[in-house]
Design a protein around this nucleic acid. Structure first.
Lengths: 224, 224
DNA sequence: GAGAGACCTGAATCGGGTCTCATGTCTTGC
DNA sequence: GCAAGACATGAGACCCGATTCAGGTCTCTC
């Protein structure tokens, strides 16, 4: 597979590009963790370096030893989150035998991540306006896996051969995203708490939709 | 239909809530127009009141005679854009006879608007982070129409009765959005110009996907 | 135990934003 | 032609954020 492995991580460097001692690595990690918290809480523009460094318990200047600026931490964070979402999806799909159930499992993995970290997934979406390149990377990496899976499944006869794998992959991802937004990010109980997981009925409804969309049709290969 | 009519517009008021003379109304309109331009060009956070008033050719203070602040103009703009997107969709669907072709036409209307105003559709999406309430309104209004249409089509036998209309409506809208983003907002030719319209092949592929997803299945009502 | 890096710090600099307000200018009714 | 009220203005008060930098401190090596 040419798809990027969701488990590899780059070596941490200082802002100047130099390698770090373990003390430096630890501090860098604390900044990243604080950034995750602050961005998730406040969104990109309300977040500030001061708030991040305060939350990390370090001096303001220290931040600039490890990052060029706010945008760079943000990008690194999105890339990390992308790895984590894909890991969640990959884990969920691991046991599936045919493509249709793999598809369902993949969505469950995605919904599980979103339910567990609603604010974090919002961070990823905000990348569209903060760092479009990074968002492209995010979506592209997810779609690549999808597309390969769909192509293989078409060869197996699990998926309608008339469907274009690329367009279909984007359509499925979009469907998953809006469903996640609607039923996980928007839904709040009386105390304002988000749901712990996607309601089974929604997962079922969505699975039915996907099964319909993907399964080979017995007859009627009509006009385009 | 209980769906909000995309053609009605509220009366313009001053920031203090007073009705306006025609001179005032004209100025207010110029601000809104300038805001549309500036937000589309720069995004919410890069945009500033100064830039908006400069573009409108009026003094800075004048802005505050008509709006409470940046956020309020933004929200008004998003609501206006929502009306325009829905109008574009409704016009495209007007001639359709059955639901499946109405669906396809609706997407064509949506893609037409996005292709004609790529930057404007980005403004709508940015509302997720600037004014979540307004974005909810945007999506909800679109989904309402969808859902009613799907329900009616199920009664007619045009659409698989096993599908949940609400979940299906959100899934379709999400699919349309990501396809729009991928093939309209991202695609640039050598000069960096966006495509004038959605490629026919993508529309066809998407239509096939939707037809599969919605059409009643002859047999196999399998497990959930 | 002393020197060399690596690491840390926050006051100060700089830039840019929103919003107010005291001071005009138009337009309309009479 | 002259109030009165609607409309217009932009300098300035105020706020807040990113980034720099000169001066520390820590830690490791020999």
């Amino acid at each position: 597979m040419s798809v990027a492995d969701p488990h590899t991580e780059p070596r941490p460097l200082s802002a100047a590009g130099k390698p770090l001692t373990s003390r430096g690595e630890a501090t860098r990690g604390r900044i990243l963790e604080a950034a995750e918290h602050v961005f998730a809480d406040l969104g990109y523009h309300e977040a500030s370096i001061v708030k991040i460094t305060e939350h990390a318990g370090i001096g303001l200047g220290t931040f600039y030893l490890y990052f060029d600026g706010k945008q760079q931490v943000f990008e690194e964070l999105v890339i990390d989150l992308n790895r984590r979402v894909r890991r969640s999806m990959a884990e969920a799909m691991a046991g599936a035998t045919d493509r249709i159930s793999a598809e369902r499992a993949g969505f469950e993995g995605f919904f599980r991540f979103t339910a567990a970290h609603p604010a974090l997934y919002r961070v990823v979406r905000e990348a569209e306006f903060v760092s479009p390149e990074t968002l492209r990377l995010h979506y592209t990496r997810i779609v690549e896996g999808y597309e390969t899976g769909l192509r293989a499944a078409q060869a197996e006869g699990d998926v309608d051969e008339a469907l274009d794998p690329e367009v279909t992959a984007w359509a499925l991802m979009g469907a998953g995203e809006l469903i996640g937004m609607r039923y996980l990010l928007w839904e709040r109980d009386a105390d304002g708490a988000p749901p712990a997981e996607m309601p089974a009925s929604v997962v079922d409804d969505m699975a039915r939709f996907i099964r319909n969309a993907l399964s080979p049709r017995a007859s009627t290969e009509g006009s385009a």
